[in-house]
Design a binder for these strands. Structure first.
Lengths: 244, 244
DNA sequence: GGAACGACTTTACCTATGTTAACGGTTTGC
DNA sequence: GCAAACCGTTAACATAGGTAAAGTCGTTCC
């Protein structure tokens, strides 16, 4: 099974169980990935989407830009995540997608997507995946709209912990996070300086140690409690390696 | 054609053109609506979705609640809007849906949705509709994350103007908006007091007159300019009665 | 017609967060 | 091996927006 297919399969398995046939189908349909450097646009706002992008390795993001150049990340795409299945239905993108770190990206042609949707189990997994993407958007909206900076960052770190654990990219108490503090700010709607203040405070309270692309969370449940994190909205299957 | 079907057809026509056959199909599939009073839960967080809700009349909303009771509206459902097509794929709701004003709501059974998805034109319209819902979520995230209170409210009012115009519920320069200032705050992530400050300022600058459930916008383009509003993300068909 | 209620207003005060600017440490490129 | 760039850190200061409380106005209900 090629690498791209494997990554997608891992992700989809966190949402629905797949048969051997499904795996073969994925393998047949997913093209090999190509390499992109960090901070490259994969598609810009206003352009016409042709493929469904699948992140095979690295972190990518969806972003929107304001007139004054301020940018806001509206989604993080982790390995196994992909763009909207039906994006090609729209005439133009209302946001951009860019790599964050260096990435491997597979471009799935529209027919490939349609083939996968033929399998009931795959259809279920793919549709659940888009529902979860939407649920994450809602949670981010709540996060920015109602929580104060400390809970806000904590919540984001909890979410990433869960999502990365589900795909085997995080341990019990930490994970690699290739995001600068400025970038965390672009997600959380905070200035770099303030992100730094919060990170410092979280460290002082021994809740999170964040440094050089690595996050350590000595007591995940304590952190989750602090920010009211509840993983329900990720709709992960119970087996998918989450801690309760 | 029954009322519920008509409202849905109006909405879907803003996204894709429909044939006579499509209209008949809608008419056959959409059940009559029932009446709900204002501020009633249609479905609560944690419950299992059974139907796809269609708002026929009135305003409804999606909301999420925090431990401390603070609520945040994560979507406004206007007449013709409906819940996620595939929501029944999820085990439980990660947010609630409630009426805002008194509403007429039609509950579309799952098979009805599947029937509609059989028609290519309807499928296109319905899928575009869910893509637009997601696009609105992203725009709201940007709105709250990056814009200051004045632009933020202005942007929200512009969006509602466009959405309501598309379904024939707004004129060139105004519309009825049955939301209190407190509720606008729950959408924009602002306190009631601050919403009031902003409303006052917008009035002083002759940009928006907001009073008793009615919004008057003397110069929509000036308002749109102020807050950088660009309707692209609504992906409305050109004919759908939007002002340029 | 008066009481009760809800929405809207305003004031005074407080604080979370933004802004600007500067400095030190690491990594990267030549 | 040095310079440049980038990132993280901190300080001083500015301000947008939150909170609490009270008053006004219009509507609804008896």
């Amino acid at each position: 099974m090629n690498r791209s297919a494997q990554v997608l399969a891992t992700k989809l398995r966190t949402l629905s169980s797949l048969s051997a046939g499904d795996l073969e189908l994925i393998d047949r349909v997913i093209p090999p990935a190509s390499h992109y450097e960090a901070r490259r646009d994969l598609i810009r706002e206003g352009e016409v989407p042709q493929y469904v992008m699948l992140v095979v390795q690295g972190f990518a993001c969806r972003y929107k830009t304001l007139r004054d150049g301020k940018r806001h990340l509206v989604a993080l795409l982790l390995p196994g995540d992909c763009g909207d299945l039906h994006a090609p239905l729209l005439d133009h993108m209302d946001h951009g997608i860019a790599t964050h770190t260096a990435c491997l990206i597979a471009k799935i042609p529209r027919e490939g997507v349609l083939d996968m949707l033929e399998s009931p189990a795959l259809e279920k997994a793919l549709r659940r995946s888009t529902l979860v993407d939407e649920a994450i958007l809602r949670e981010w909206l709540l996060n920015i709209g109602q929580r104060r900076s400390e809970e806000r960052l904590a919540h984001l770190l909890c979410e990433l912990h869960h999502r990365l654990r589900a795909i085997g990219m995080a341990g019990e108490a930490g994970y690699d996070l290739p995001l600068t503090q400025a970038e965390l700010g672009e997600i959380a709607g905070l200035s770099t300086v303030h992100v730094n203040r919060v990170v410092k405070e979280l460290r002082r309270r021994e809740l999170v140690y964040l440094r050089r692309g690595r996050v350590e969370i000595p007591d995940p449940r304590r952190l989750a409690w602090l920010c009211g994190f509840n993983a329900n909205y990720l709709h992960q299957l119970a087996e998918a390696g989450t801690f309760s």
